[in-house]
Computed example of a mutant assay.
Amino acid sequence: MPKDYFNDPIERATGESFATSPHSLMFERLVSNLQSTLDEEVFFDDSDWPEGFDWRSEAEAVWAGLAEDATLLATFRTCRPDDRLLCRAAGVIHRAIRAGSPAELEAARIKLAKIMQKPAEPRIHFMLEEAGLSLEQMADRAEVEGQEPPEADLGLTPEA
């Protein structure tokens, strides 16, 4: 059986446990992988890799895989309203990953906030909130990267 990433935190937060659907398991895994990627990417820079290794293409491949996972979940059909919310949220996550500008990323965050306003079980809101925190972290990082001087893209330190 696949690992149930959020059931323990949800049970602690809401006081209830639940039987997982394939959609919720996929969404849990998507958000968990998104969070892990965001956390790990903070620690990557050119000094972490052997000379000549293009770590940026490796990171881009991970993001592309996350976007594919989000697309897969977004296209699943379901009759359960809670699962439909998760599928819609996965589409928003895909949109955020593929955002080409801070404005597109902000539009995705707004769309997720609207999805979060829909009535759903507490466990669904918990998972959506986790996704929202990840999109917020993505937006913060995009804002910081947009404010860095051009030499930061070359891996140069301010002293150089």
Rank of each mutant, 00 (worst) to 15 (best):
A131T: 02
A61K: 12
E121Y: 02
E159D: 14
T157P: 00
T71F: 00
F53M: 11
D153A: 15
D83R: 01
D140G: 15
G52W: 00
L72S: 08
A89D: 05
L154Y: 14
H125N: 09
R56E: 13
E148W: 11
R77M: 02
P50H: 01
D4K: 10
E148F: 10
R98V: 12
E129H: 11
F27K: 08
S47P: 00
A61F: 00
Q117Y: 01
Q147A: 15
I97N: 02
P9N: 02
F18V: 06
E130C: 08
P2E: 07
A139H: 15
S47W: 06
A160P: 06
G146T: 05
V62K: 03
M127F: 00
R77C: 02
A59W: 02
L112K: 10
G132N: 11
H94T: 09
I93K: 00
A59L: 15
E41G: 08
S101C: 02
S134H: 05
F76E: 11
V42E: 13
T78F: 03
F6C: 07
E11A: 15
L135R: 11
R95H: 11
Q117G: 06
D39Y: 04
H23L: 09
E130G: 05
P158D: 14
W55K: 05
L72A: 07
K111G: 05
P81V: 06
P150H: 07
D48K: 14
E143H: 14
A142S: 13
F44L: 13
A64R: 10
D46T: 09
R123E: 10
Q147F: 10
E58W: 06
R12I: 12
V92R: 01
A13H: 13
A90N: 04
E159Q: 10
W55Q: 04
A131P: 05
G146Q: 11
L154N: 09
A13F: 10
R95D: 08
A96T: 05
S101F: 00
E159P: 00
I10Q: 05
D39F: 08
D45K: 04
V42I: 15
P158Q: 07
G155T: 09
